[in-house]
């Protein structure tokens, strides 16, 4: 599904290049569930952002569904991104001014989905995550776990092929975290959504089918289950 070849990301500090991601090559197939681990500053989030096209590498080749991302123009990249990728954040990043319903609906608006169709899709999603009763509440009125649930629902509403999650359980207690992980597993198994998550927790990482360990911007180890 995606292929990174010799990807590097660095900051120029004085005369030196300060590498955040250093010559990483990585292939992810459709249907995989990858966990990226590593200590603070090892480049996990940057790598995830590069995969999600939120950040651009300085060097290397990046292919996504057989398209050379490193050659695409901003607009084409955005189109590709919109069609295939969903993002989940540690801090949920819901829009405070919008209700649960509207938060979930927003990506569809940007994809020019018609109003009636949007209604049906959001209703479906609310149903599936069992948050119909909460649809008119604002994020501030929800618990952390519920907010992350909305965050995931929002990421999934446009039916992405790839779900990127940056420490999705980082702000949650262990029980809430477990529920989210179960949800991820189910999405991966039953719906065939490819998932790449960044996590600090060994336990959560083991939900994945592959664990990649990063250290100082390089892949230190990679193991498949």
């Amino acid at each position: 599904m995606l292929s990174l070849q010799h990807i590097s990301k660095y900051y120029q500090v004085g005369g030196n290049k300060n590498f955040v991601v250093n010559d990483i090559s990585l292939d992810v197939d459709e249907g995989e569930f990858v966990s990226i681990m590593g200590p603070s500053g090892s480049g996990k989030s940057t790598l995830l952002n590069i995969i999600g096209m939120l950040d651009e590498p300085n060097d290397g080749y990046h292919y996504f569904v057989n398209q050379p991302v490193h050659q695409l123009k901003e607009k084409q990249r955005a189109a590709l991104y919109k069609q295939y990728i969903g993002f989940v954040f540690q801090a949920y990043h819901l829009i405070d001014e919008l209700t649960v319903y509207e938060n979930i609906e927003t990506p569809l608006i940007y994809q020019d989905v018609k109003g009636s169709e949007r209604k049906a899709m959001v209703a479906d999603m609310l149903d599936r995550f069992q948050i119909v009763g909460k649809k008119d509440l604002f994020p501030a009125q929800l618990s952390g776990g519920q907010q992350q649930l909305v965050g995931i629902a929002r990421a999934l509403i446009a039916k992405p092929k790839l779900l990127l999650a940056d420490e999705p359980t980082g702000n949650l207690n262990s029980k809430q975290g477990e529920e989210i992980m179960e949800l991820f597993r189910k999405l991966n198994k039953e719906d065939g959504v490819t998932i790449i998550q960044v996590t600090h927790s060994e336990k959560n990482a083991e939900y994945g089918s592959r664990i990649i360990n990063l250290l100082d911007g390089r892949v230190e180890s990679s193991r498949k289950f």
């Binding site: 939120l54 993002f87 990043h93 405070d96 990506p107 940007y110």
Partner: peptide, 15 residues
């Protein structure tokens, strides 16, 4: 933050 989120969800600059 809102702008960032909207962009991540696919909002173009023009929108």
């Amino acid at each position: 933050k809102e702008i960032g989120v909207r962009k991540v969800m696919g909002a173009m600059r023009g929108q």
